[in-house]
Design a protein around this nucleic acid. Structure first.
Lengths: 135, 135
DNA sequence: CTAGTTGCAAAGAGTTTGCATGGCG
DNA sequence: CGCCATGCAAACTCTTTGCAACTAG
């Protein structure tokens, strides 16, 4: 059994930040500096510890963009069924697109059937450039 | 114009390591420890500097696995057209598979045509579990 | 000889851990 | 009150940078 999850002010603030930024990814540093600039103080370690838990609990997703050294975290919106489709991440502007498309959904099946590989959609992100940034 | 590329013993050793491990990825630490355990000595900085150059020159690929903090580097085999297809990476055993399949090659075109997104195959790795590890 | 290269050590950047204090339930 | 969570600082890991010595061409 997992330990009790006490409600604390810090956790509330962090989770709210993700809920208010469903369309963006946040880095640990951004979270720390945002909180510390808003009449509150939070330790870096606390942020990392809670981020880890949120990732384990499937509340947020953790990425590593190739050109960034720091990890990025983004809310996994249950309403958008993010576990069931692929994601596209623009390496220029950072936009995350949900690739909810029947054609793409067939890809996972194809890879499993033809290549014996089970793709984990919750981990996989396709990198590239979105319409605007490609220009 | 770019500076002349002097041939050195260090560069030769590193490049050979990639050529002898086309099917695997190597980390900077692995390269350093391998070389230093073989009657030769090389500085960490030298390894990183040459890796950067190999990446810039398109000789090797650099990527980050979700659960690793260190970067992985792998030779881009011209014969396998690694620039043009996707890669599958098993999150259990670390095996990297080349997904060279006409069906899959259509994916990039589809995403561009239907979703206006240009996928960068050299950056994208699909994560999941291979046949053996799925059991 | 000149300019690219190397090795070492120090500096950075990001993340994790140890530990005493603090707060939820 | 017991146990989890927090903050701070130190420790760590990986990578980059500064610089003097070295070397390929």
């Amino acid at each position: 059994m997992r330990p009790t999850d006490y409600k604390t002010k810090q956790k509330e603030i962090i989770l709210n930040m993700f809920l208010e930024n469903k369309d963006k990814h946040l880095t640990a540093a951004e979270i720390v500096s945002y909180i510390n600039s808003n009449n509150y103080n939070i330790g870096t370690a606390t942020v990392y510890r809670y981020l880890d838990r949120l990732v384990s609990n499937g509340i947020i997703r953790k990425y590593f963009l190739d050109d960034k050294s720091s990890a990025c975290y983004q809310y996994i919106d249950p309403e958008k069924k993010c576990r069931e489709h692929f994601h596209l991440k623009c390496i220029e502007c950072g936009e995350l697109m949900h690739l909810d498309c029947s054609y793409m959904q067939a890809i996972g099946d194809h890879i499993l059937a033809e290549h014996g590989f089970t793709v984990d959609n919750s981990r996989t992100v396709l990198y590239g450039r979105c319409k605007n940034c490609e220009k």
